[in-house]
């Protein structure tokens, strides 16, 4: 019913694609510099990227890595391409930043540019806009990455012919840590990718990066 065409993992300053290390940054670098390094390495020219919060930046870069050589809209109808993402901390970093501009009533200048990134599904929206996805676009918040839930959600969408392709994964940014795991699922005649496959890929990546 669907297969996994490619998967990527970005954490601990390492970028892996299909378990192969593509990029590695010094451990001492903070994620702001790591994300900028990846942006440059990909040769991107997308000024809006610089306005995004770090959650959106991580989701955006992860999608770029996986889709740079395979634009999905050339293979599938836009309405049949979707995005299913899990996350734990939502946009609390930007929420805190925005809150700090509201706390001083004598210097009350909330930033509109910050405010627009105080919703985690802005990240999924940024990816959909960039790649022309018009199918199901869902973001679920749970304390831990809930692989079973995400897989079942994707399974039902493919089963009910709502999607022919989707990005599925987990994108999380915290104070000093980040993790992104993303895979491209595409419709096939036979069931080529199982829940256990997904679990095994996640486990392997965590081991590879000591996550």
């Amino acid at each position: 019913m669907f297969k996994c065409s490619q998967h990527i993992y970005l954490s601990k300053n390492q970028l892996l694609v299909d378990f192969q290390k593509q990029l590695e940054f010094e451990k001492s670098l903070n994620y702001a510099k790591v994300f900028k390094g990846i942006y440059k390495d990909l040769g991107l020219d997308y000024p809006k990227y610089f306005k995004m919060d770090y959650l959106s930046k991580l989701g955006f870069l992860s999608a770029e890595v996986i889709l740079k050589d395979q634009p999905l809209t050339s293979k599938y109808a836009s309405e049949k391409i979707g995005l299913i993402i899990g996350n734990a901390s939502s946009t609390y970093l930007m929420d805190s930043k925005h809150q700090s501009t509201l706390s001083d009533k004598t210097s009350y200048f909330p930033s509109p540019a910050n405010f627009v990134y105080t919703l985690p599904n802005i990240m999924t929206g940024e990816i959909c806009i960039r790649h022309g996805f018009k199918g199901e676009n869902a973001l679920f918040i749970s304390q831990k990455m809930d692989i079973d839930f995400l897989w079942n959600y994707a399974y039902n969408l493919f089963e009910n012919h709502k999607l022919d392709a989707c990005l599925l994964g987990y994108v999380e940014v915290k104070d000093d840590d980040y993790e992104s795991f993303l895979m491209l699922l595409e419709r096939t005649e036979k069931q080529g990718f199982t829940q256990n496959n997904l679990k095994n890929i996640c486990t392997t990546y965590k081991k590879e990066t000591n996550g």
């Binding site: 306005k51 930033s111 509109p112 540019a113």
Partner: peptide, 17 residues
């Protein structure tokens, strides 16, 4: 510069702040 409507709001805030 290719700014958008959110940027316009930001410029209004900049002038005031």
């Amino acid at each position: 510069l290719g700014l958008d409507s959110i940027d316009a709001l930001e410029l209004i805030v900049l002038l005031e702040k």
